[in-house]
Amino acid sequence: MRIVVCVKQILDPRGLTVNRKSEKVFVNREEYRLDPASRAALQVAAAVKAAQTASNGANPPEIIALSLGPDRVDDALREAMAFGADRAILLNDPAFETADAFVAANALAAAIRKMGEFDLIVVGARSLDSGSGELGARLAEALEVPAALNAVSVEATPDGLSVVREFGEMFIRLDAPLPLVLSVVPEAFEPGYANGWRLMDAYKKWTVDVWSAADLGLADVDVQSMAVRREDAFPPERQLGTRMKDARELVAALKRERVI
């Protein structure tokens, strides 16, 4: 069984200051981190692997972490190995610099096909930064398999997965067959921590393979972004909060605003 987890590295928003007045985003500390939804995806993959290993120990599943981006994404993939991935592949090519979700899905799908057979693809439902939430559905389309998106609970069963997915205000249980694309809602999973020993090994012993656009045999139309970012925009400057003297004045204000 082969599980591929597509992970994303994002700019850590704790290093950002958004100044609405001057309409600028200041990057105070340019630090990158593994997206929380990707961490949840890795945890779910590790749990599925553990369940499969328990029932079929002779042939444990392999988890491959896959990402797309520049050299710095190497860090995210090593962290992914510390979270349980057995190996890691980075798709790194100048052609991917301005990749939108279309290009990302084309490249990731081509890499997954290049690996050969696959059973399960796990992605985060929505990244913290751009948060378009397109990747799961696009990958399923590109790989021509069903998708179970916005999963809040995942259990391995003998024939596939039992998934509970969010659907607006409903939760729906799906008996999902394999192969499958699964996207997970990070809030639904307890945050886990990377294994310290694995983290050391990830940097000292293991390697991250790097594949280029040429390795993936992508055509020009596959790496052409179809959604182009023009500029940033800002919400109106927030009215600086009115300072109140005491609880009484506050209650009056809350009543005036009809929040109580």
């Binding site: 928003p13 958004v18 279309f102 913290l128 930064d129 751009s130 182009v228 023009r230 925009a233 919400p235």
Partner: peptide, 24 residues
């Protein structure tokens, strides 16, 4: 299509334009 969409959960926005074959 030219759309404004939230980034970092609405901390700020980005303006994005589509292109490519129809439909957009």
């Amino acid at each position: 299509f030219v759309g404004k969409r939230p980034v970092f959960g609405g901390e700020y926005f980005e303006v994005v334009a589509t292109s490519g074959p129809a439909p957009q």
